[in-house]
Design a protein around this nucleic acid. Sequence first.
DNA 1: GTGAGGAACTGAAAAATATCACTTTTTGAA
DNA 2: TTCAAAAAGTGATATTTTTCAGTTCCTCAC
Lengths: 235, 235
Amino acid sequence: MSIKGIFPIDKWDFKSESIMHDLPQEVYELLEKHKSEQIYKKNNVLFREGTFPSGIFFIARGKVKKYKTDKEGKEQIIYLAGPGELVGYHAILSGDRYPDSAAVMEDSVISFIPKEDFIKAVEFSPVLNYRLLKTLSHEFGVLANNLTMIAHKTVKERLAVQLIIIREKYKLSNTGEGLIEINISRDDLANLVGTARENVVRVLTEFKNEGILETRGRKIMVQDVNRLVTIANQK
Amino acid sequence: MSIKGIFPIDKWDFKSESIMHDLPQEVYELLEKHKSEQIYKKNNVLFREGTFPSGIFFIARGKVKKYKTDKEGKEQIIYLAGPGELVGYHAILSGDRYPDSAAVMEDSVISFIPKEDFIKAVEFSPVLNYRLLKTLSHEFGVLANNLTMIAHKTVKERLAVQLIIIREKYKLSNTGEGLIEINISRDDLANLVGTARENVVRVLTEFKNEGILETRGRKIMVQDVNRLVTIANQK
DNA sequence: GTGAGGAACTGAAAAATATCACTTTTTGAA
DNA sequence: TTCAAAAAGTGATATTTTTCAGTTCCTCAC
């Protein structure tokens, strides 16, 4: 039983082709000229909601979360970005402030491209322009799915969905043989699912007791994806 | 006490300039050529999630809801669109199926523009292209706000927020003197807020008893916006 | 290798929300 | 105008989720 068959997987989050892949030489050079690559340590913040954008970030290696924080300090993760993805371009396109914050979830290699260079490239290149439209449309769909899910599914169902997505998305960072290791803090998982940490832990324990997954330290290894898929599609 | 002062109003839903406003003559003509204007009766469906797009819709007059429906038939409203707004263009940009459905909430005047003409116009016009990017970025921000809100705010707070937004958004359809009439079914309101109809009705009654609003039939008239704003910002 | 501090986990109680079964009101078609 | 059907409203109960107040388990800096 393939996951695709029962779960509209392509409408979710899985990484598509990198937006930067195979751009015309001139655009590529324009972006390369002033970019600066740097290693960001875990928990470093790339930018904060409400500030004015100075440029965009291209993830070469690592994981980045985009999130919003409310008055009480509660965090909601909007999007998990990985290698090949661009972060921080919404604000530059809309000409407004950053609508969300971004932070590095594990030590990552990230390029910074100054605002002016990016805008120039977008103006110069219909290909990049069109690709941004596609990416944005895709991200919008993912977000709309999440909204519907949070509004209508239980914590258990939502957690099942997110585990499937994360597992698929971060497949590559696997050690090779054996089970795929999902490495994410319970807090981040809770902020992604849209609930309290305690609930995530409880459902995780439930899944463990049912033999759906096992944990080693903070790491989660899914043993039976199909059952997760069944739970995800329950309602 | 202005609403703007305490509530980040510009980050929410209020209608900005129409995407079609003041386009270069050639683009305008390209879009006009094959468009067909038509009156859609209340509850008519413009398109359904998962089908292939045949074109886009421009709302000349009326109200349209974009929504997703889950397995159990529960509806979640993603976006409320009004006059001057474009609907159904996401799917065309992403080259995929419609990610959501759209239905008319009251008798409306709507133009249909065939897919090919729209794509041609986008390819031809950097202005239109750029404007779509801006609109999409804006819509993304609104959606991200809603996601965070549904995840962290109570039904009462969310309803307060949405009442403020709808009231502002549909200000124009007001009769003139006196209070602004919000005309929306309790079901639609519930599907927008992300809860059951009963809860919406209960909170509405609460608001009524506190003198925040009054109702005449299905119509809601807000008497004290400031108190709604206070509730909306409670947490 | 160790121990301090952070993260993960647990249980019980309170609060919010969903559901069900029903009455009343409103609406719009004949 | 009437009157059925649809929508709105109500109350009681079940379920889910949050919150609080802890304990236990990892991790990594020394």
